[in-house]
Write a protein that binds this DNA or RNA. Structure first.
Lengths: 209, 209
DNA sequence: CGGCATCCGTGACGATACTG
DNA sequence: CAGTATCGTCACGGATGCCG
């Protein structure tokens, strides 16, 4: 059980649950879908095994995360977000928006994962009843752009009607906010495939925010 | 200088700057206006003096906080938010919204300050070109409800056109989300004074969210 | 006094090794 | 694969002291 601030304040209470080191980054990882312990450890470079185990237990007690045996795969134990955990999406979005100007240049020591671009891209893309697959050098993920369920998940999408392929420079320009999606689509190094209202909307350049 | 996660991710970068223990609570305090070191120490029960000094230095290097001599008062040194610091308001709002269900009952050990209710109330109140003074048992603060500058500050407002007085039960019901503002205004224990469009809007019961 | 710096005990963290 | 055990280090919390 982590230490409490002991303040009658909603912000302090939230930080009692998700304010510890690594906690929100674990939530970020699980926002991409259920993960096993080893996968989490691999995508959180620097976290030690005991801290990961402790955080997962704390987050479970805080009703943010559940342990579950995935159906299909022979009894694979996995962690996933609860409804309360998914309700942290606005917190992650706000942090991502604020942190964007700090991304300017990747440092030599920085780890990179494809799905870390998902939250910034969700902040950037319009609401649309569509699923967009995004392919980067580091891997693929897909975004659900419905107004009701704006989310993302790892890997290619089975039901994507559009696919966006970005080279590293385009991806970086998008994520750092130095280029709009319209800019990137005009330049070489990016490709938008598929059809449907989303593709027409994006290709049409009707992107204000 | 705090430890970095070393990840090329906007969320991780944000947490590199404001993810340390106490950091966001210091930002919360300074959201109510400039504060001196001793005031911060008094309103953050449990923080040690050296941690407060270290965080303030880190936040200064992170362009979140500035040190300044307040004009008027004989060379009183104070800390205040920079523009980047004020840009953290959506993060605090999202955390407050998520933490609201955790507030149910104040615990015996919990500290209480009047202005800690300001962010939840801002999340609750509509956009209006008005300044609302709020009086609680613990003290007073005021909210600026403009679309452009939604903010709050300590103490009574010189230019408030409305005043909302809440007894402890009403304030708790509002802050925990168990009652709407319309509910509270119908019950005894709360009083709304003043005039202008805001008062008419609130008194009229036209409060959906 | 306000604004820290220092010292010290405890607990959290990070790396590695090890176990069911 | 999914953690637990161990250990060194560092951050935190509390008290006290210094210095303008």
């Amino acid at each position: 059980m982590p230490r409490s601030y002991d303040q009658y304040c909603a912000i302090a209470r939230a930080l009692d649950t998700v304010g510890d080191r690594w906690a929100l980054l674990i939530v970020r990882e699980l926002s991409a879908g259920p993960r096993r312990y080893t996968d989490l450890h691999a995508d959180l470079p620097g976290i030690s095994t005991d801290v990961l185990a402790t955080r997962l237990k704390d987050l479970e007690r805080g009703d943010v995360v559940t342990r579950r045996r995935l159906p299909g795969h022979g009894s694979a134990l996995a962690y996933e977000l609860t409804d309360r955990g998914r309700a942290l999406a606005p917190v992650l979005a706000a942090l991502a928006a604020w942190g964007t100007p700090l991304l300017a240049e990747p440092r030599a020591v920085d780890a990179v994962r494809a799905h870390w671009a998902a939250v910034p891209l969700l902040n950037l893309l319009p609401v649309a009843p569509a699923v967009l697959e995004v392919r980067l050098d580091e891997g693929a993920f897909h975004l659900r752009l419905d107004a009701a369920e704006r989310s993302f998940a790892d890997g290619p999408a089975p039901d994507a009607e559009a696919r966006l392929t970005l080279d590293p420079a385009s991806a970086r320009a998008l994520i750092t906010g130095t280029a709009t999606l319209a800019d990137v689509l005009r330049a070489p190094g990016s490709r938008l495939e598929g059809d449907g209202p989303l593709v027409e909307l994006l290709a049409g350049g009707a992107l204000v925010s």
